[in-house]
Amino acid sequence: DTLHVTQDGKHIELRGLSEEEIKLVEELLRRGRKVEEALKIIEELRK
């Protein structure tokens, strides 16, 4: 699936995420994380 995010005035499209990963990214962003940080966390969880 694809998640569309706008952060720091930039539109970012995150592709290839599972539904659970999207929920996790959304939660991390709500808690003030940056998109880059959220993606690093997803990458770690995929290992």
Score class of each variant (00 low, 15 high):
40 K>T: 11
15 R>W: 14
21 E>Y: 02
47 K>F: 14
39 L>H: 02
34 K>E: 08
10 K>H: 13
9 G>M: 03
26 E>H: 13
8 D>W: 00
17 L>R: 00
18 S>D: 08
37 E>F: 09
43 E>I: 06
35 V>R: 02
15 R>F: 15
24 L>I: 13
42 I>D: 00
15 R>I: 13
41 I>Y: 12
5 V>D: 07
39 L>T: 03
45 L>Y: 07
29 L>E: 01
38 A>I: 15
47 K>I: 13
45 L>N: 07
17 L>K: 00
3 L>C: 12
40 K>L: 12
11 H>P: 12
8 D>G: 07
10 K>F: 10
10 K>C: 05
8 D>S: 05
23 K>T: 11
4 H>R: 04
29 L>R: 03
11 H>D: 14
41 I>M: 12
23 K>E: 11
47 K>E: 12
11 H>Y: 11
8 D>N: 08
8 D>A: 05
28 L>W: 11
20 E>A: 13
41 I>E: 09
3 L>T: 10
19 E>D: 12
40 K>Q: 14
11 H>L: 13
24 L>C: 03
30 R>T: 08
38 A>Q: 00
11 H>K: 07
22 I>W: 10
38 A>P: 00
14 L>A: 03
13 E>P: 06
36 E>C: 06
46 R>M: 03
2 T>S: 12
26 E>P: 01
15 R>L: 14
15 R>S: 13
12 I>H: 14
43 E>Y: 10
25 V>P: 00
33 R>E: 12
41 I>G: 02
18 S>P: 01
14 L>H: 03
41 I>P: 00
14 L>C: 05
36 E>D: 11
20 E>G: 12
4 H>S: 10
39 L>G: 01
29 L>V: 08
29 L>Y: 02
2 T>I: 14
26 E>C: 15
28 L>A: 06
29 L>W: 02
6 T>A: 08
13 E>L: 10
35 V>G: 02
19 E>Y: 15
39 L>W: 07
36 E>S: 11
26 E>Q: 14
38 A>M: 07
34 K>G: 10
42 I>Y: 00
8 D>I: 03
35 V>H: 04
38 A>W: 01
29 L>I: 13
45 L>M: 11
5 V>L: 09
14 L>F: 05
6 T>Q: 13
38 A>V: 15
16 G>C: 04
25 V>R: 00
8 D>R: 00
31 R>L: 12
27 E>F: 12
2 T>V: 15
11 H>W: 13
34 K>F: 06
30 R>P: 00
29 L>M: 11
11 H>C: 09
47 K>L: 15
29 L>G: 01
15 R>G: 12
32 G>F: 03
6 T>I: 15
15 R>V: 14
7 Q>Y: 02
34 K>H: 11
2 T>A: 05
1 D>L: 15
2 T>M: 09
37 E>G: 03
42 I>S: 00
40 K>P: 01
36 E>K: 08
43 E>W: 08
40 K>W: 11
37 E>K: 03
5 V>M: 06
39 L>A: 04
46 R>F: 03
4 H>V: 15
43 E>R: 05
46 R>L: 03
4 H>L: 13
37 E>H: 08
29 L>S: 01
26 E>G: 11
42 I>L: 09
23 K>V: 13
5 V>A: 05
14 L>I: 15
38 A>C: 08
2 T>Q: 08
17 L>I: 03
23 K>L: 13
47 K>H: 13
20 E>D: 14
28 L>F: 12
4 H>Y: 04
18 S>F: 05
47 K>P: 05
9 G>S: 04
5 V>C: 13
25 V>W: 04
35 V>N: 02
5 V>R: 01
27 E>R: 07
39 L>F: 06
31 R>G: 12
23 K>G: 09
22 I>A: 12
10 K>V: 15
1 D>F: 07
45 L>D: 04
19 E>W: 14
43 E>N: 08
20 E>L: 08
5 V>Q: 07
40 K>R: 13
6 T>G: 06
44 E>P: 00
27 E>G: 07
24 L>R: 04
26 E>D: 10
14 L>G: 04
11 H>R: 06
19 E>N: 13
44 E>R: 05
12 I>M: 09
15 R>Q: 14
46 R>I: 02
1 D>P: 15
9 G>P: 03
43 E>Q: 10
45 L>I: 12
16 G>Y: 06
46 R>D: 01
20 E>R: 10
28 L>Y: 12
37 E>T: 05
41 I>V: 11
12 I>Q: 07
24 L>G: 02
4 H>P: 08
6 T>E: 14
18 S>T: 14
24 L>P: 00
13 E>T: 10
26 E>S: 12
8 D>Y: 01
34 K>S: 14
25 V>H: 01
32 G>V: 01
19 E>K: 15
12 I>R: 03
5 V>W: 04
20 E>M: 14
34 K>I: 06
11 H>V: 15
22 I>C: 06
1 D>H: 15
33 R>W: 15
12 I>T: 04
22 I>P: 00
31 R>C: 09
7 Q>S: 12
32 G>D: 04
25 V>M: 09
43 E>A: 09
21 E>N: 01
21 E>M: 02
21 E>R: 00
11 H>E: 14
9 G>K: 01
27 E>L: 12
15 R>P: 09
21 E>K: 00
12 I>N: 07
29 L>K: 02
19 E>F: 14
19 E>H: 14
33 R>P: 01
45 L>R: 05
41 I>K: 06
21 E>D: 03
5 V>T: 07
16 G>Q: 06
3 L>V: 11
13 E>C: 05
39 L>D: 00
47 K>V: 14
33 R>A: 15
38 A>H: 00
23 K>D: 07
35 V>T: 05
17 L>N: 00
20 E>I: 12
47 K>C: 04
3 L>D: 08
27 E>P: 01
39 L>Q: 04
14 L>D: 04
1 D>W: 01
24 L>Y: 08
11 H>I: 13
24 L>W: 07
35 V>C: 02
2 T>H: 10
16 G>S: 05
47 K>R: 10
18 S>L: 07
43 E>H: 08
27 E>T: 09
32 G>I: 01
18 S>N: 09
11 H>G: 07
19 E>S: 15
22 I>T: 10
29 L>Q: 03
37 E>P: 00
40 K>V: 11
3 L>A: 08
44 E>D: 12
6 T>M: 15
26 E>V: 15
3 L>K: 03
41 I>A: 09
17 L>Y: 10
26 E>R: 15
39 L>E: 02
1 D>G: 15
21 E>H: 02
37 E>D: 11
30 R>D: 10
7 Q>T: 08
4 H>E: 11
7 Q>M: 07
37 E>I: 05
21 E>W: 02
33 R>H: 15
17 L>V: 02
20 E>H: 11
45 L>G: 06
16 G>V: 04
35 V>L: 12
5 V>H: 07
21 E>S: 01
37 E>C: 06
14 L>M: 06
25 V>N: 00
7 Q>R: 01
3 L>I: 12
47 K>D: 11
40 K>G: 09
41 I>C: 05
46 R>H: 03
9 G>C: 03
33 R>D: 10
36 E>P: 06
17 L>T: 00
22 I>V: 11
6 T>C: 09
19 E>V: 15
22 I>H: 07
23 K>H: 11
27 E>Y: 12
16 G>I: 03
15 R>T: 14
39 L>K: 04
20 E>W: 13
40 K>I: 10
24 L>A: 05
38 A>K: 00
30 R>L: 12
41 I>T: 07
39 L>I: 13
12 I>Y: 15
23 K>I: 12
23 K>M: 12
8 D>Q: 03
8 D>T: 04
10 K>M: 14
27 E>I: 11
25 V>D: 00
16 G>E: 08
2 T>W: 08
44 E>N: 07
33 R>Q: 14
16 G>M: 03
40 K>M: 14
40 K>Y: 10
44 E>I: 08
27 E>W: 12
37 E>Y: 11
45 L>K: 05
34 K>L: 12
21 E>V: 01
38 A>D: 00
35 V>P: 08
42 I>K: 00
33 R>N: 12
36 E>I: 09
11 H>F: 12
20 E>K: 13
12 I>P: 08
1 D>N: 14
30 R>C: 07
2 T>Y: 09
21 E>Q: 01
31 R>I: 14
4 H>F: 05
37 E>W: 06
9 G>A: 02
36 E>W: 12
24 L>N: 03
31 R>F: 12
1 D>R: 03
12 I>D: 06
43 E>V: 08
5 V>E: 06
16 G>P: 04
12 I>W: 15
39 L>R: 04
43 E>K: 04
43 E>S: 07
20 E>T: 13
41 I>L: 11
28 L>P: 00
9 G>D: 10
10 K>N: 12
21 E>I: 02
26 E>K: 14
10 K>Y: 14
7 Q>A: 07
46 R>V: 02
46 R>G: 02
46 R>A: 03
44 E>A: 09
34 K>T: 11
6 T>Y: 12
1 D>Y: 03
32 G>K: 02
34 K>W: 06
13 E>S: 10
9 G>R: 01
46 R>K: 04
29 L>A: 02
12 I>S: 05
29 L>N: 01
31 R>E: 12
9 G>H: 07
9 G>F: 04
36 E>A: 11
43 E>T: 06
4 H>C: 07
35 V>K: 03
37 E>V: 05
18 S>G: 03
21 E>G: 01
2 T>C: 10
24 L>V: 10
23 K>P: 04
19 E>R: 14
18 S>K: 07
5 V>K: 03
20 E>P: 11
29 L>F: 05
32 G>E: 03
18 S>A: 07
36 E>M: 09
2 T>P: 09
33 R>K: 14
28 L>S: 03
44 E>M: 07
10 K>A: 14
17 L>D: 00
14 L>V: 10
32 G>Q: 02
20 E>S: 13
41 I>R: 06
32 G>S: 01
40 K>S: 12
5 V>N: 07
25 V>F: 11
8 D>K: 01
31 R>Q: 15
8 D>P: 06
9 G>I: 05
